[in-house]
Design a binder for these strands. Sequence first.
DNA 1: GTGGTACCCTAACGAACGTTCGACCGGCCT
DNA 2: AGGCCGGTCGAACGTTCGTTAGGGTACCAC
Lengths: 196, 196
Amino acid sequence: MLTSRREEIVHAATELFARQGYHAVGMRAIADAVGIRGSSLYHYFPSKVELLHAIASDSTKRFIELQLADLRPMPTYAERLRKLLGDHVTYFHAYRLEEAVGLRELQELKASAPDYYAELQATRRSYQDAVERLIRDGCAAGEFDCADAHLAALAILGMVNSVNDWFRDTGRQSIEAVAAAYAAMAVDGLLGATPR
Amino acid sequence: MLTSRREEIVHAATELFARQGYHAVGMRAIADAVGIRGSSLYHYFPSKVELLHAIASDSTKRFIELQLADLRPMPTYAERLRKLLGDHVTYFHAYRLEEAVGLRELQELKASAPDYYAELQATRRSYQDAVERLIRDGCAAGEFDCADAHLAALAILGMVNSVNDWFRDTGRQSIEAVAAAYAAMAVDGLLGATPR
DNA sequence: GTGGTACCCTAACGAACGTTCGACCGGCCT
DNA sequence: AGGCCGGTCGAACGTTCGTTAGGGTACCAC
């Protein structure tokens, strides 16, 4: 499954950080999880915070590039946003451990590696701006009914980002069903895309 | 301002935990912030995790009791929910440090003091259930248009809880304005309370 | 005055922390 | 055969961790 030892380490650290938090997990615990000694980790990462950066940066950037790439093809703004939000929820679930670490330990990056923090924040910001622009354009085109596109974008992103806090695979609904429902609540409900 | 030394400690610890995280803050750092030595903290709290519990439990319980207490008086379900969500946002902002700690370090409580964790989760759950019931009743009364009251409650709570992630007092809008806007987006938008 | 209690101190405990160092072992290149 | 090098190791570095023990001072009750 995991090709290189480096990926193996990133994967183990992601799981531990997500479950216990960055500061609660020692280098020796990460090493134990992949069956080596703590000192051997420094062959792959120069420090603990660089390991955190690898986790947070990789998945976040990949996600945002993916999402911003195929915004184009759908005909209406409503359909574009529905697809974007649905993909957002399913991706966030697929990479929920990485995203949990990326969101929660962002402050640690801010303190220990400010340049990495700024870089990540900028990436995230570009995504938020894209969503906001989509909403604003949809409003201008008469598809959406919304007083403040900026606030609506923040509200909708807060909404879709919160799915991982409660969703469990053992529940009655699949993640795809939840993703579709959330996209509908945002686009057809909050933004009033469909006349009732 | 702060009457007792105990409250002073809780306040200082809240600020430090919120900014840096539970595990990143040592007992000596908390003691420094109130001008005493680390060992003196154990005169007020038997352990670090009890201090965390005091922070997380106090504000969460007070909030939920407040919110559930005065649900009654408003005539329509829409008005009740609007008021509830507006108060939710403004309270969460007023106690944003405590709430940030309560939300983020919940896992630590789960690991170190499972009974406290269960107790907090139950309290939170009762609040979520109350919101869901309000939505369900509003649907039954024909005020709301909503396919899945459970999902809608989760979405709306995720939405209002996320305000603290971006809101800053230096921005253009007051927290009261944002609270009203969020309540409107949830009740009139997502739940379709007002015919468009 | 005597005893007790509230509060704070210094000092220390053992454990864990992130990180560094030097050595060893096994393949690959020449 | 000999040398380089990626990968791992044990051991140790100095620091910080949460916590405990015991002592001291100020005030309050009797």
